[in-house]
């Protein structure tokens, strides 16, 4: 068995779900190969963390916490208009956002045209003084 094949079977090896001879082949490979063994140890450690979850117990105030939350939710429900207002506020915010986007767009467009003019100035100079005249002056 090569390293790759062994690494693809390790999780099942750990659960002892491989058919008999494969279980043995993986064990033999791990005994000889340090690299695969190191990864196996890591995988085993990681998966043991999940097993550890099963030992966890709820805290002493678990039930009291639930009752508090039920009461809190009841008082929230006595103001249903808050829930109704949420989508309205969201739509309003979206409209303001779009308006702002348009404003920024227009503003940028205006600035861009000023920049274009500034860049065009030397060409205007050139048209005022034709190239032939310029060459004559140089001579």
């Amino acid at each position: 068995m090569n390293h790759q094949t062994v690494r693809n079977k390790l999780i099942f090896y750990l659960e002892e779900r491989l058919p008999g001879d494969e279980q043995q082949k993986v064990a033999d490979h791990l005994a000889d190969c340090g690299e695969c063994r190191r990864y196996f140890e890591l995988l085993k450690g990681e998966l043991q963390l999940l097993d550890g979850n099963r030992q966890q117990e709820a805290g002493p105030y678990f039930y009291a916490g639930i009752k508090n939350r039920i009461e809190a939710r009841k008082s929230c429900r006595s103001f249903p208009w808050q829930r109704a207002l949420q989508p309205v506020m969201l739509a309003l915010l979206l409209a303001v956002g779009i308006r702002f986007g348009i404003w920024v767009g227009n503003h940028a467009q205006a600035e861009l045209s000023t920049t274009e003019q500034a860049v065009l100035v030397p060409f205007d100079d050139l048209s005022e003084e034709p190239i032939e005249e310029f060459l004559l002056n140089v001579e």
């Binding site: 693809n8 999780i11 099942f12 190191r38 995988l43």
Partner: peptide, 17 residues
Amino acid sequence: AKLGLQKKLYQCYKKGS
């Protein structure tokens, strides 16, 4: 899921080593 998890954890192991 087990195959995928094994692969992801191996990538993590290679990055760490």
